[in-house]
Structure formats: C-alpha cells, structure tokens
C-alpha cells in the first residue's frame, strides 16, 4: 500500500520480480535471435528483430493472461500477480518495438506518409482473407498503450476502480485482435504447423483456465437465501483462524472473517483493483487483500491511518456454532461490533 505516488515504489520483492522478468525476456530474445541467425544466415537483422520482438510480446501476453485464472486456481501463484503490471508494461514495450520497426521497415522511405501507408496499402477491408492484418496489430497496440499508460495507481485512483478495471479488461479485445493479426498475417502465407499449433494451444489454454476458475467461483456465487433477514455462512470450525468464507447474498459478495475468537463481515471487493478480500488473510490485525496487500480493519472496513480506503461492512452473528450475516450492506467504513464466538452473540 502507499499514500503518496512514486514512479515505482521499489522493494526487494519487486526487484526480484523484475529481475526474473528481464531474465525471461532476454532468454527468449537470445534463443530467437541467435538460432535465427545460425539457422537462416540470409535473414536480415530487421526481420529477426521484428519477429523476435513481436513473438516475445505475444508469448508474454499469454503468460500475463494465464496468471489471473491460474492464481485463482492455485493461490500459491499469487506472487506472480502482485507486480503483473510490470509484465504488462514490458509486453507493451516489446510490442511497440515490433510495431515501430515494422512501420519503419515497410512504410518509411516511400511516396506516402507512413501511417497513411500502413492503413491503405495492404488489403481489402471488405474481405476476411485479405483483411489488412497490420490494422489489427495497430489497434491492439493502441489498447495496450492505454493500459500501459494508466497502469500506475495514480490513474487507478483518479479513474476509479470500476472504470480502470473496465479499461484494463480491454486486454481481451487486444488479445483477440492479436490472434487475428498473427493468423491473417504470418500464418496465412507460411507453412508453420508448429507455430499454428502453439497459437491454438495458447488460445485453448486461456479459455480452459478461465473456465476452470469460473467453475470454482460458481460455487461461491450460488445465491444464499436469507431466513428472517440472516443468511447462513458456515459452522465456526469450518473457517480457519484469520481466514474467511465467502458467500453471495442479495447480490453482494461478502467475506466473513474469523479471528481472535470473533467474526466480522465485509464486502469481498477490494477498493484497489476489486481483488477478492475473502481469499486474503488477517495480517497484523487487518484484512489483507491477496492481490496487492491493501488492508482494512475487520470491524469497520477502513484502512488503517494514514490510508483512506473504506469498504462496506455487514452485521454478523454466531448461534450454536453457526455463523450468519445480515446481507444488507452498511455504508463503507461503518463500525460493527464483531460477533463473539464463545459468547455467540449478534454484532
């Protein structure tokens, strides 16, 4: 968490993360460039660079998109999600290098302004087969630029989380555009069965991971029914100490935490990036989001000073070892006395 904005708030974990990210990118480029130069001595440096940067960017985009659902299925992979924005910016830079080099190579030095040439000199907009694949890559790069430019928490706070999240969900539009860019570009004219199979595998893998994560979340999202205004959550012994059980009631996702002989209920949605607080843990007395470590006090859903984030809270009660919540949300930051497990009272 941070209060003031810095370009990057470096800490040891981020340095380790970025170090391995750099190793991965350099390893890919080294294998591609060295083998390319050895296997095809006539290949020009520009072609090698354009293809190396383009494929590195696309492979990295797959890793980025896989991390989200993979971390939902395997929470131990959450550290990969923590600084994923660094991966996203790196992927954009690689894509930009690919795009700029291709623009220079194919469109600069001619009888038309390069961007006009890009949009007019290749293909038939009315045809699927002859559709100009460059336009698809150009549009995808535009989306990725918007995402990279707004990846900082400054923009997240100023655009608000829902708008920022919607903007960043456009990555799936960019991904679809890039799949078409590759399919209607390189793969359309070149016999490359292994590359084609890798692309198919990449697309199927992404769908598969999202489907598996959605199936798992589907169980949580099953709407719980209220009885006299209270919704059953779980038995006390079913929730680990400092952990939560998530339920969906009256259209709200609620995270119900057990800690220090008490139970508190808050909104499951983190104010930062809508992360699932119910998958978090109480650390140093605060509910801690699994995505980026944003913290909230269990009793009032407010971040500890000097931070100012607040989330809605819910009333909870414990009766005969069973936990119940009132699904009516209270205004963000409303203090609610935690339900006592031993005394089994109403908060």
């Amino acid at each position: 968490m941070s209060l003031a904005y810095q370009a990057v708030g470096w800490n040891r974990q981020k340095k380790v993360y970025d170090g391995w990210l750099a190793v991965g990118i350099l390893l890919y480029l080294a294998v591609f460039m060295v083998l390319g130069a050895v296997l095809f001595p006539s290949i020009t440096a520009e072609t090698l660079l354009i293809r190396g940067f383009g494929t590195a960017s696309f492979v990295l985009l797959h890793v980025i998109l896989y991390i989200g659902p993979a971390a939902r299925l395997f929470p131990r992979l959450l550290p990969l999600l923590y600084n994923r924005r660094h991966m996203g910016v790196s992927m954009f830079v690689l894509g930009l290098a690919h795009g700029v080099l291709a623009l220079i190579q194919y469109h600069v030095g001619g009888d038309q302004f390069p961007l006009v040439s890009l949009l007019t000199s290749n293909g038939d907009y009315a045809s699927v087969v002859n559709f100009p694949f460059q336009l698809l890559g150009f549009l995808a790069l535009g989306i990725l630029f918007l995402m990279a430019a707004t990846s900082h928490d400054f923009w997240l706070a100023n655009l608000t989380a829902p708008v920022w999240k919607a903007l960043h969900m456009l990555v799936y539009v960019a991904y679809a555009l890039l799949v078409a860019h590759v399919a209607l570009g390189y793969l359309q004219n070149h016999a490359a069965p292994v590359t084609t199979a890798l692309l198919g595998l990449g697309v199927l893998g992404l769908f598969g991971l999202h489907a598996a994560a959605a199936l798992r979340e589907g169980a949580t999202d099953k709407e719980a029914e209220a009885d006299n205004g209270w919704v059953y959550v779980a038995r006390v012994d079913e929730i680990l100490e400092n952990r939560a059980r998530m339920i969906c009631a009256a259209g709200e996702r609620i995270a119900v935490f057990k800690y220090e002989g008490k139970v508190s209920a808050v909104s499951n949605v983190c104010q930062h990036q809508n992360g699932p607080l119910g998958e978090g843990k109480i650390v140093d007395g605060c509910i801690t989001c699994p995505w980026h470590g944003y913290q909230y006090r269990p009793k009032d859903g407010a971040s500890p000073p000097p931070f100012t984030e607040k989330i809605p809270t819910f009333r909870a009660k414990v009766t005969e070892g069973k936990i119940y919540v009132d699904p009516k949300p209270l205004p963000p930051g409303t203090e609610v006395e935690p339900a006592l497990i031993q005394g089994e009272g109403v908060a």
Binding site: L39, I43, T55, L198
Partner: peptide
Amino acid sequence: AAFLIVREQKDI
C-alpha cells in the same frame, strides 16, 4: 517456444 517458432522461419 522461441526455438520452435524461430526454426519455422523458413521463408528466408
């Protein structure tokens, strides 16, 4: 992946 993709650049 880099190896598999680059070895198919046979259009050179």
